[in-house]
Design a protein around this nucleic acid. Structure first.
Length: 474
RNA sequence: GUCCCCAUCGUCUAGAGGCCUAGGACGUCGCCCUUUCAAGGCGAGAACACGGGUUCGAAUCCCGUUGGGGAUACCA
């Protein structure tokens, strides 16, 4: 029995990744199987190494380590898809040769047009298969001319296509509802669909345990397995973690970065316990249990299918439980391993050194580096000279979104990006930076803003910015 | 729009036809403990979305309605 998680290194380590990892790992461990980590970095534009490293670190922090993966090796490697492109190209070619796939020369404009038509006609599929049956010689001619193209799968034109979901039973849809899926992009990289099917097969994955959002594309995957003549694995689709408003959990409405939870002082065992309670329960309904106990009792029949809301209140209660049962020595150890250790103080102390007269002053002057800032009101945030709450909200929203995209969270890049926002919004640096300072620290007087933000870290800054946004919301 | 998934207290959930006048937990409220605040203890309020079937009997099975969610990308 072999399972995997396949995160895409395109951002901050996501709580949903940990959730799916936990259930994969628990299932594998319960049955003496293997848990594989595969990096799905087929999106050249968005994938980056820093993100990959952060995902490794966060999963390890939670104790969700893997038997096989890019950094630990294994007999089915490489485990990074960008290192497997030759394999995908070969397999795509194999499908073209066997008549299961074909080159498609549609331009972005053509595709846009088709989407508009499909919308108007109320169909789910957009691509009209116009290149599916191009004469052989024309295909050859275009290819020889070096025309840009993708490789698409020839989906069956009629009939039903389905699979058995481990939690829901049989699910099937009309094959005609499914587009001729792109297998190979024009940059030669595979899409998720091709890469995931090829790798799951080659890596001998027996159970694909992933999020519910994949249900609609599973028929595409089944069709692909068929085209290759392979036996598909078992599929299990986990419910989606939700925001308070029931939408799919997102950074706009909830802290989703695992880094946020670590920096905020949640204990990994509490986090794992809490994730284990999302959609799942122990046979005796215990609220508090270790990963080991979860494995011991693990069974997918104990899953509940409606998407659970990620409730910080309950996580906080659980975390308190774990915190309280530590010995004093253990607690001190946790604290020093967290932000009270030399590592963090080394970064922090120089920033406030010039601003104190006694060592004791450090406590008051560094509070927001360690814990949450004081609660804010709109008056605290809106600059006096601006005086317009809605304008402040708009500007802070824009800055927050721009900051979301900053991957190199350090002093200089942060300043550059924020100065640019001054240009864009027409706000004076004094006003814009002042509002940012208040949002991130809760104070009007702090060490230089961007150094401060660097030390506090992206995850917590983002969370604080979103809290400030909520305060300003109309 | 179209396709797919889901549906028990505000939230996480137990419940696999009679054990359910629906149980536990978080949160809320009240009381106790206490120099304070927590923690802890005790208690209260709070849900089977609706309508049809099936059955002697339905929160549990079936159908429909409604509601929510997801998918409809050369992102995963």
């Amino acid at each position: 029995m072999r399972v995997r998680i396949a995160p895409s290194p395109t951002g901050d380590p996501h709580v949903g990744t940990a959730y799916i990892a936990l259930f994969n790992k628990a299932f594998a461990e319960k049955h003496g199987g293997r848990f594989v980590l595969r990096i799905e970095d087929t999106d050249q534009k968005r994938s980056n190494e820093a993100s990959e490293k952060a995902i490794f670190a966060s999963l390890r922090w939670l104790g969700l380590d893997w038997h096989e993966g890019p950094d630990v090796g294994g007999e089915y490697g490489p485990y990074r898809q960008s290192e497997r492109t030759a394999i995908y190209r070969e397999h795509a070619q194999q499908l073209v040769d066997s008549g299961h796939a074909y080159p498609c020369f549609a331009t972005a404009e053509e595709l846009e047009e088709m989407r508009a038509t499909a919308q108007a006609e109320g169909r789910r599929t957009a691509y009209d298969r116009r290149y599916r049956d191009l004469p052989r010689d024309e295909v050859a001619r275009r290819l020889a001319a070096g025309e840009e193209h993708v490789i698409r799968l020839k989906m069956p034109l009629e009939g039903r296509i389905g699979f058995v979901d481990g939690l829901r039973g049989p699910i099937e849809i009309d094959a005609a509802e499914v587009d001729d899926q792109i297998l190979l992009k024009s940059d030669g990289f595979p899409t998720y669909h091709l890469a995931n099917v090829v790798d799951d097969h080659l890596m001998r994955i027996t159970h694909v345990i992933r999020a519910e959002e994949w249900i609609p594309s599973t028929p595409k995957h089944v069709a692909l397995y068929d085209a290759f003549g392979w036996e598909p694995p078992a599929f299990v689709h986990m419910p989606l973690l939700r925001n308070k408003d029931k939408s799919k959990i997102s950074k706009r409405k909830n802290p989703v970065s695992l880094e946020y939870y670590r920096a905020s002082g949640y204990l990994p065992e509490a986090m794992v316990n809490f994730l284990g309670r999302m959609g799942w329960s122990m046979p005796d309904e215990s609220e508090k249990f270790t990963y080991g106990q979860m494995v011991e009792h693990f069974d997918f029949s104990r899953m509940s299918l409606s998407g659970p809301i990620f409730d910080l209140d309950k996580l906080g209660w659980l975390n308190g439980l774990y915190l309280r049962e530590l010995t004093h020595a253990e607690l001190v150890e946790r604290l020093t391993g967290w932000l009270f250790g030399a590592d963090y103080l080394t970064r922090l102390a120089p920033l406030v050194q010039e601003r104190v007269t006694t060592l004791g002053d450090f406590v008051g002057k560094t509070a927001y580096f360690l814990g949450p800032p004081r609660a804010l009101t709109a008056d605290d945030l809106v600059p006096k000279k601006v005086g317009d709450k809605d304008a402040a909200h708009r500007v802070l929203k824009d800055v927050t979104e721009v900051l979301d995209g900053v991957t190199d969270w350090r002093n200089e890049p942060l300043e550059a990006v924020c100065r640019e926002q001054c240009e864009v919004t027409g706000w004076k640096a004094r006003d814009l930076f002042g509002m940012l300072r208040t949002a991130v620290t809760g104070e009007t007087a702090t060490p230089p803003l961007f150094e401060t933000m660097e030390v506090i870290g992206k995850a917590r800054c983002q969370a604080r910015l979103r809290e400030a946004l909520a305060v300003l919301a109309p």
